[in-house]
Design a protein around this nucleic acid. Structure first.
Length: 889
RNA sequence: GCCCAAGUGGCGGAACGGUAGACGCAGCGGAUUCAAAAUCCGCCGCCUUUACGGGUGUGUGGGUUCGAAUCCCACCUUGGGCACCA
C-alpha cells in the first residue's frame, strides 16, 4: 500500500473538478440558490495565512451548500485600485497597472492550489476598464438622482506632495511620505449623500439578525443619532448679513448655565470677520493649521479668540454672552456653533477658566453638594438631579427626561425646535490620485460641471503617465484632460480626481451576479442571485466597507440597478479572526562613546533584529520558550546544549514574543505556498479551521501544522486499509454505525453554525472510533465514506481520494450530504450520574426509556446513596431522564 | 471619558442550567525496531493517598437554583470600538 501524497492527490482532483466544471454557477430555477462571498483581496502580490483562513471558511460553506443541493455562487475578484501600486511605481519606476496585474497573476497562481470551489469564470479586477466603466455609469446615475454632489470640504493637504491625505496617512501632523507639516485646506470635492440614509441605515440594523451584534453596534455608534434642540442667539450689532447665531445642543436643560458662544473658524460669521479684521484672520489661519486626525486634535491646545461681539440669551435678554472663535469647534457637526456651559462640561470648564468666564450651575446632585468652580458637574445619563436654574419642568428629573422637558418648553416658548442629528457625515469620494476610477465629469467654461455621456464610458486612465514628480499624474498629462463639453461641444477639461477605492468595493458583490453585463448589473441575474447569503471577512471592515456597501445597495436600488429585496445586500455576515504567530528576535548592539559630565563612557544601544520562523530553532529552557539560530550548530547537539552555548550572548540567543498578527515587519509570517509545498493544501485548510473558534484568532504553530498533516495521513491510511481489507461481514456494526450517525449530526450542526473547530474535534473523535472499530467490512466502508463526505468541505482533495478508494459514486463534492438517522442518535441504554446534594457520587446504567420511578428506586439502592442517607429518608429526588439523578439528603 | 466583549489545565480550546476539561498541542511511560523515522498502546487539572478513595477546582466576592463555567448583582483584569460630536 502506498502512502498519502498530498501533491499528487491535490493536483489530480483539482483537474477532475475543472473537467466537470462543478463550480460553474449558472442560473437554475429548479434549485435553491446560495451566494457565498469572502471579502475580495487587495493584490499585494502574495497571499498570506489570513487569506487562507478567510477563503477556507467560505469554501467550507460553499461546498457544504453544494452537497445539500444548492446552486452555489462562489466568486473571486481583486480590489485592485489604490495607493500601494502608485507607491511601487514611484519607488521602482514601473507602471501601477503592470504591477497590479502581475500581482494578480501571482496571487491567483498561489490561490488555485488551495482547491477552492470558485467559479473563476466570473473573476474581475476593479481596475479593469470594464468594471470601472460601469462604476462611472453608476456615478452618473447617482448624480442624476441627487445621490452625489459637489461641495467645499476641509481636507488634510500635503503641501510638498501636493495631494490630499487620508487621516491614516497623517502621522504626528506630518505627511507620511513627505514629512511636511499637513495643512487643512478647503477643496471642492464630490460627496455621496450617505447621510440622507442615516435613519434607514440605523433602523435597518435591527433586522440584520445574522450579523454579529458587535458589528451592528459599531455601525450604530458610527451613525451616532442624537436628539437635541436647535435655536438661535440674537447677535448684537453683528456685521451685515449676520443677526443671529444658530446653535445645536443635546443639553438644552443647561441653557441657563450658558456663559459664552463659540463658533468654528470655518463658520460664516468667522469668515466675514476674517475678511474685515487682520487679528481674526491671523487666528483663523493658525487654527486651520494641523491635521484633522484624532491625534492632531488630541494634542492641539484649545484656543479661543474673543471677537468682541455679543449675543442675547433667548430667555434673559438682559444677559449678554461673548462670542468666541474656537479651534475645537467643527463646522461639519451641528451648526458649527455651540453655547458653552462650563458648569456641566469638562471642555467648556477649562475654556472658561482660561478666558475667565463665569461658571454657573443649572443643576446639582440630588444629595450632597458639588463645587462647580473647581470641576464641572457631569451626571450619568440616568442620574436624577436637582435643578437650580430651571429651563423647564420638574425640579428633580433624570437626565433624559430633563432634556426632553427642556426641548418641549423651548418649543412652546418659540425658542428653537427639537431636532435629530447624526454623527454620520457625507462620504467624500474625491482623491487626487492616478490609480483609481476617474470621476466621469467635465469642466466647461460656459456650462460648468457637466456629466460625461454614458456612450463615452469608460473614461479610461491613460497609460502614458509619469510618477517622477509629486502631485496627480493626471493633472500634468499633456492631453488627457482635454475634451469637449458634452453639452455645448466647446473645448473643456476632464476632472482629474479619481474615486476613493472604497467605492470599488461597495458594489462588487452585485457585479459578480453578472460580471460582464453591459450595464452595472443585469436585473434578472441580480434578482436570481442576490442577496449574498453568507459574507465572510475581517472585523476591520466592520464599519466603513459594510456601511458603504449598505448605502450603495440602497442607492443602486433607487437607480434601478438592484431589486428591492437587495436593500440589505448581505443576509448573514461572519467576521473571522486573524492568524497569529510568535515573534522571534535577536539583538544587535551598537557600542558608542558618549560623554557624561566631562567623562567619556561607552554606551550600548540595543536594537531588536526580527527573525523568520525558519531561521530559528525554538525549544524550552528553564521553563521559558527561547531559541537559537538554526544554522549555527552541529545537529547532533541537544537543544539545551545549543542554547547554553549562546545564552549569555545577546546577539546570538533568540527571544520569543507571544503570538501577534502575522506581519512582514515582524517577520512572523508563514507563507501558505511553503506550507502547501510541504504538506499540501488540505493540511493548511484543516489547520486554520481547527483549534480556535473561527471568530477568534488562531495561532499558527509548526507543531500544529505537523499534527494536522499527521492526522490527514492517518485518515488516508485508515481508509486505504478498509478499502483493501476483506474482513468478515459483521462483528459489531451497531456501535460504529450509531457513532457515525451521531458524528453526521454533530458535524452538520457544527458547519451550519460556523462551529468549524468543534466539527473538526468531532471528526478526530470519529476517526479514532473507526480506527479501533471491530465492525465488519460493510459497516466500516459505510462509516469511512461518511467520514470522507463530512471532511470534504474542509479537506476536499483528501476526501475525493478516499471516496474514490472506497468505491463512492462520482465525486464526493457533488454527492448528496449524508443524513443522520434520528433513531440511531438515541442509545438503548444510558449511564446516569448519581449526585448527592449536587455532587457526583456514582453512576447507574439503565435502559433509556426506564420510567422515573424505576430510576429513583435504582438510585436509592446505590451504595453511595445508602451511605449518605444512613437510614434516613431523602428530602427530594430529581430525575432528569437521560441526564442525571440528584438526591437531596 | 463613553460603549461593547471576554476571563476554563503548561497551551489552543469543549461543554441545550445536569458527569467540567471533549478534541488537539506539549509532556510522561510502554510496544515495535539492530537503531532511528514512521506507527501503535497507555497516562496526563491541582492537593492528598502505596492503592481504593477523599478534598478542591472554570478571574474575585455575593445571589438565584435540587444542581451554575453557563443566569443575576458588584468588583478586578485583558481585548476591542468610539471620542474636541456640542
Amino acid at each position: 500500500m502506498s502512502r498519502y501524497s498530498a501533491s499528487d492527490v491535490e493536483a489530480k482532483w483539482q483537474s477532475a473538478w475543472d473537467a466537470a466544471e462543478v463550480f460553474r454557477a449558472r442560473r437554475d430555477e429548479t434549485r435553491p440558490k446560495y451566494y457565498v462571498l469572502e471579502m475580495f483581496p487587495y493584490p499585494s502580490g502574495r497571499i498570506h495565512m489570513g487569506h487562507v483562513r478567510n477563503y477556507t471558511m467560505g469554501d467550507v460553506v460553499a461546498r457544504y451548500k453544494i452537497a445539500t443541493g444548492h446552486n452555489v455562487l462562489h466568486p473571486m475578484g481583486w480590489d485592485a485600485f489604490g495607493m500601494p501600486a502608485e507607491n511601487a511605481a514611484m519607488a521602482s519606476g514601473g507602471h501601477p497597472k503592470d504591477w497590479t496585474y502581475s500581482n494578480i497573476a501571482d496571487m491567483r497562481a498561489q490561490m488555485k492550489p488551495l482547491g477552492l470551489s470558485i467559479d473563476w469564470s466570473r473573476e474581475f479586477a476593479t481596475c479593469d476598464p470594464e468594471y470601472y466603466g460601469q462604476q462611472q455609469a453608476l456615478f452618473l446615475d447617482f448624480l442624476e438622482h441627487g445621490l452625489v454632489y459637489r461641495k467645499n470640504a476641509v481636507v488634510n493637504w500635503d503641501p510638498v506632495d501636493m495631494t490630499v491625505l487620508a487621516n491614516e496617512q497623517v502621522i504626528d501632523g506630518k505627511g507620511w511620505r513627505s514629512g511636511a507639516e499637513v495643512e487643512r485646506r478647503e477643496l471642492t470635492q464630490w460627496f455621496f449623500r450617505i447621510s440622507d440614509f442615516a435613519e434607514d441605515l440605523l433602523e435597518a440594523l435591527d433586522r440584520l439578525d445574522n450579523w454579529p451584534a458587535k458589528v451592528r453596534l459599531m455601525q450604530e455608534n458610527w451613525i451616532g443619532k442624537s436628539r437635541g434642540l436647535q435655536f438661535a442667539f440674537g447677535l448684537i450689532d453683528g456685521p451685515e448679513g449676520h443677526d443671529r447665531v444658530e446653535v445645536y445642543t443635546t443639553r438644552p436643560d443647561t441653557l441657563m448655565g450658558a456663559s459664552f458662544v463659540g463658533i468654528s473658524p470655518d463658520h460664516p460669521l468667522a469668515k466675514t470677520l476674517e475678511r474685515e479684521r487682520a487679528d481674526v484672520a491671523a487666528f483663523c489661519a493658525d487654527a486651520r493649521k494641523g491635521g484633522t486626525t484624532a491625534e492632531a486634535i488630541e494634542k492641539a491646545e484649545k484656543l479661543g479668540f474673543d471677537t468682541g461681539l455679543r449675543v442675547r440669551h433667548p430667555f434673559d435678554t438682559a444677559c449678554e454672552l461673548p462670542v468666541y472663535i474656537a479651534n475645537f469647534i467643527l463646522m461639519d457637526y451641528g451648526t458649527g456653533a455651540i453655547f458653552g456651559c462650563p458648569g456641566h462640561d469638562q471642555r467648556d470648564h477649562e475654556f472658561a477658566r482660561k478666558y475667565d468666564l463665569p461658571i454657573l450651575d443649572t443643576f446639582l446632585p440630588l444629595e450632597g453638594d458639588h463645587d462647580i468652580q473647581a470641576a464641572p458637574y457631569v451626571p450619568l445619563k440616568s442620574e436624577r438631579v436637582r435643578y437650580t436654574r430651571l429651563v423647564a419642568g420638574e425640579e428633580i428629573q433624570s437626565g433624559e427626561a430633563g432634556v426632553n422637558a427642556a426641548i418641549e418648553f423651548c418649543e412652546t416658548n418659540g425658542v428653537g425646535q427639537g431636532v435629530t442629528k447624526f454623527r454620520l457625515r457625507d462620504w467624500g469620494l474625491s482623491r487626487q490620485r492616478y490609480w483609481g476610477c476617474p470621476i466621469p465629469v467635465v469642466h466647461c467654461d460656459t456650462c460648468g460641471v457637466v456629466p460625461e455621456r454614458k456612450e463615452n464610458l469608460p473614461i479610461r486612465l491613460p497609460d502614458d503617465v509619469t510618477f517622477d514628480a509629486p502631485g496627480n499624474p493626471l493633472d500634468r498629462h499633456p492631453t488627457w484632460r482635454d475634451c469637449t463639453c458634452p453639452r455645448c461641444a466647446a473645448p473643456a477639461r476632464r476632472e482629474t480626481d479619481t474615486m476613493d477605492t472604497f467605492v470599488d468595493s461597495s458594489w462588487y458583490y452585485a457585479r459578480f451576479t453578472a460580471p460582464h453585463a453591459a450595464t452595472p448589473t443585469d436585473m434578472a441575474e441580480a434578482e436570481y442571485w442576490m442577496n449574498v447569503d453568507q459574507y465572510i471577512g475581517g472585523i476591520e471592515h466592520a464599519i466603513l466597507h459594510l456601511l458603504y456597501s449598505r448605502f450603495f445597495a440602497r442607492a443602486m436600488q433607487v437607480c434601478g440597478h438592484l431589486p428591492q429585496k437587495a436593500i440589505e445586500p448581505f443576509d448573514a455576515l461572519f467576521t473571522q479572526g486573524m492568524v497569529t504567530h510568535e515573534v522571534y528576535y535577536t539583538r544587535k548592539i551598537f557600542r558608542r562613546e558618549i560623554e557624561v559630565e566631562g567623562k567619556t563612557a561607552e554606551a550600548g544601544v540595543t536594537q531588536a533584529v526580527f527573525r523568520f520562523p525558519e531561521e530559528v530553532l525554538i525549544g524550552e529552557y528553564d521553563g521559558k520558550r527561547v531559541g537559537v539560530l538554526r544554522n549555527e550548530f552541529n545537529e547532533s547537539l541537544s537543544f539545551a546544549e545549543k542554547y547554553e552555548a549562546v545564552k549569555n550572548d545577546d546577539e546570538r540567543k533568540v527571544d520569543v514574543i507571544p503570538s501577534v498578527k502575522m506581519s512582514k515587519s515582524k517577520k512572523n509570517v508563514v507563507d501558505p505556498s511553503t506550507i502547501i509545498a510541504q504538506y499540501g493544501a488540505d493540511t493548511a485548510r484543516w489547520f486554520v479551521l481547527s483549534d480556535s473558534p473561527p471568530e477568534r484568532d488562531v495561532e499558527w504553530t509548526a507543531s500544529g501544522a505537523e499534527a494536522a498533516h499527521r492526522h490527514l495521513s492517518r485518515v488516508w491510511r485508515i481508509a486505504a486499509e478498509i478499502a483493501a481489507s476483506d474482513a468478515p461481514a459483521t462483528l459489531d456494526d451497531d456501535t460504529l454505525l450509531r457513532e457515525m450517525h451521531k458524528c453526521i449530526d454533530e458535524v452538520t450542526k457544527g458547519i451550519d453554525s460556523f462551529g468549524f473547530n468543534a466539527a473538526i474535534a468531532r471528526l478526530y473523535a470519529f476517526t479514532n472510533t473507526l480506527a479501533k472499530s471491530q465492525a465488519g467490512q460493510g459497516a466500516k466502508t459505510t462509516a469511512a465514506r461518511a467520514l470522507a463526505q463530512l471532511m470534504s468541505p474542509m479537506t476536499p482533495h483528501l476526501a475525493e481520494d478516499i471516496w474514490a478508494m472506497l468505491g463512492g459514486e462520482g465525486l464526493v463534492t457533488t454527492a448528496p450530504w449524508p443524513l443522520a438517522d434520528p433513531e440511531m442518535l438515541i442509545d438503548d441504554t444510558v449511564i446516569l450520574p448519581i449526585q448527592i446534594n449536587g455532587k457526583r457520587r456514582g453512576e447507574i446504567t439503565v435502559p433509556a426509556d426506564m420510567p422515573k420511578s424505576e430510576v429513583e428506586k435504582l438510585a436509592l439502592a446505590h451504595n453511595a446513596v445508602l451511605k449518605a442517607l444512613d437510614g434516613a429518608q431523602p428530602k427530594k429526588i430529581i430525575v432528569v431522564p437521560g441526564r442525571i439523578v440528584n438526591v437531596v439528603v
